[in-house]
C-alpha cells in the first residue's frame, strides 16, 4: 500500500455508549483502526453495528444520551510550517473552538439522506459559503466564487445558477453532488462518507462513486467510507474494517478480506452477496439468527450465538481481541488466538 508511515487518523479502543432509561447501549464497544492519507477505508457491517456512531464520534457530534466513554481518536494535522501536530479528539470539548475549527476544515462529512441533508430554507450557495467563510476567512464575493467553483468541480451543470437555488429544486444525484461540494469546500484532509449512495438509484450511485474516486485522486484526501454494501467496498476501498455489534471483528486490505476472510462473520457476510455466477434457484445463504437486542448483548464474543464455529465454554465466556492473521490483516476470533 502506498500510504505514508503515519496514519492521518487513529482510532484506539473507542467506546461510545448511549445511556438510556431502559439501559446502556454499547453502540461502539472498543473500535480500533487507522486511516492513512490518500486511502479509502471501508467500514462495513449490518445496520446497528455502530458504523455511523463511529463516524459521529470522530466528529464529536454524538447526540445525547450518547457519550464517548473510553478510547482515543488521534488526528494528525499538517501545519503550515511542514510539521504535524497530534490532537486527541476525545479530549476536546465538543462545542469548543478547536473542535469546531476541525469540523468542516480538517474533516468533512457527507451522509445518507440527500433529501434532508440540506436545509430547505436557504439556498445551496448560502449553506456552502457559510462553511467557507467560517474556516477560510474569505470575503463574501470570494466565498461565493469558491462555492461556484466547488459546484463545478463536482460536476453540477450551470453552477452560477444552481448556487442560488434551493435543495428541493435539485434532483437526488445533484443534491448529493452539492453535498460533496460543501463537505470539500474547505479542502479537508479526511472525508467521512456515511452511506453516501444508499438513497440513490444505481446509475446515480455509480456516478457519485466515480466522482468521489476522481476527487480523491486530485486532492489526495483520505476517505472513510461507511456502507453496508460490499459491492461498493470492493470497488472503492483500499482497506476494510468489518464491524459487528460495536466491535471490529476483522480488518485488512480489501483483496485479502474478500479473498481470504478469516472471521466467521466476515465469511458469512461475503457468502450472502448475490452473485451472477451462482447456480439458479439456490437459496442465498443468510446468517442464521438475528442481531441481538441492544440491551441484551451476548456475553463473550458478541457473534457467538450466530457463529457456525462456536466453541462452547470459550466464545460465550471470554471476549477475543484483534490478532494478526496475515500481513496487515487482523481478526478478533478465538480460532486464531495463539493460545488455541
Amino acid at each position: 500500500m502506498e500510504h505514508g508511515p503515519e496514519p492521518i487518523l487513529s482510532v484506539r479502543n473507542l467506546k461510545t455508549y448511549f445511556f438510556q432509561d431502559e439501559g446502556i447501549v454499547h453502540a461502539v464497544d472498543g473500535a480500533t483502526f487507522d486511516l492513512y492519507r490518500g486511502q479509502t477505508l471501508g467500514i462495513v457491517g449490518e445496520s446497528g453495528c455502530g458504523k455511523s456512531v463511529t463516524a459521529r464520534s470522530v466528529l464529536r457530534i454524538v447526540e445525547r444520551p450518547g457519550r464517548i466513554v473510553e478510547g482515543e481518536i488521534i488526528l494528525r494535522r499538517e501545519q503550515p510550517n511542514g510539521q504535524t501536530d497530534e490532537i486527541d479528539l476525545t479530549k476536546l470539548n465538543p462545542d469548543g473552538a478547536l473542535m469546531r475549527a476541525i469540523r468542516g476544515k480538517d474533516i468533512g462529512l457527507i451522509f445518507q439522506e440527500p433529501m434532508t441533508s440540506f436545509s430547505a430554507h436557504y439556498t445551496i450557495g448560502n449553506q456552502i459559503t457559510e462553511a467557507i467563510r467560517l474556516h477560510l476567512k474569505l470575503s463574501k464575493a470570494e466565498a461565493r466564487a469558491r462555492a461556484i467553483e466547488m459546484l463545478r468541480l463536482v460536476g453540477i451543470p450551470k453552477p452560477e445558477r444552481r448556487v442560488d437555488e434551493y435543495s428541493f429544486q435539485l434532483s437526488g444525484g445533484l443534491r448529493q453532488r452539492a453535498m460533496i461540494a460543501m463537505a470539500l469546500a474547505c479542502d479537508p484532509g479526511i472525508l467521512i462518507a456515511d452511506e453516501p449512495t444508499t438513497a440513490l438509484d444505481v446509475t446515480t450511485q455509480a456516478q457519485i462513486l466515480a466522482l468521489l474516486e476522481r476527487l480523491q485522486r486530485e486532492r489526495g484526501m483520505a476517505i472513510m467510507l461507511i456502507t453496508h454494501n460490499l459491492g461498493v467496498v470492493a470497488e472503492m476501498c483500499d482497506a476494510v474494517v468489518v464491524m459487528y455489534l460495536g466491535r471490529v471483528v476483522e480488518k485488512g486490505p480489501v483483496r485479502q478480506i474478500f479473498h481470504n476472510a478469516r472471521h466467521p462473520y466476515t465469511q458469512a457476510l461475503l457468502r450472502s452477496i448475490p452473485s451472477i455466477e451462482a447456480a439458479p434457484r439456490v437459496k442465498l445463504p443468510t446468517i442464521t439468527g438475528s442481531i441481538p437486542h441492544p440491551y441484551k448483548r451476548p456475553k463473550g464474543c458478541p457473534f457467538h450465538p450466530r457463529c457456525a464455529h462456536v466453541m462452547p465454554g470459550l466464545c460465550d465466556v471470554q471476549t477475543p481481541a484483534l490478532q494478526p492473521v496475515a500481513e496487515h490483516q487482523e481478526a478478533s476470533c478465538f480460532l486464531y488466538h495463539p493460545s488455541q
Binding site: 462529512l109 440540506f118 449553506q127
Partner: peptide, 20 residues
Amino acid sequence: PYVVTARAKGLSETRVILKY
C-alpha cells in the same frame, strides 16, 4: 439530518440551532 450537516460544518451550537 440537516442539523447534523450544519454541526459537521463546524458552526457553533447556538448558530446551528438558530439558523437551521
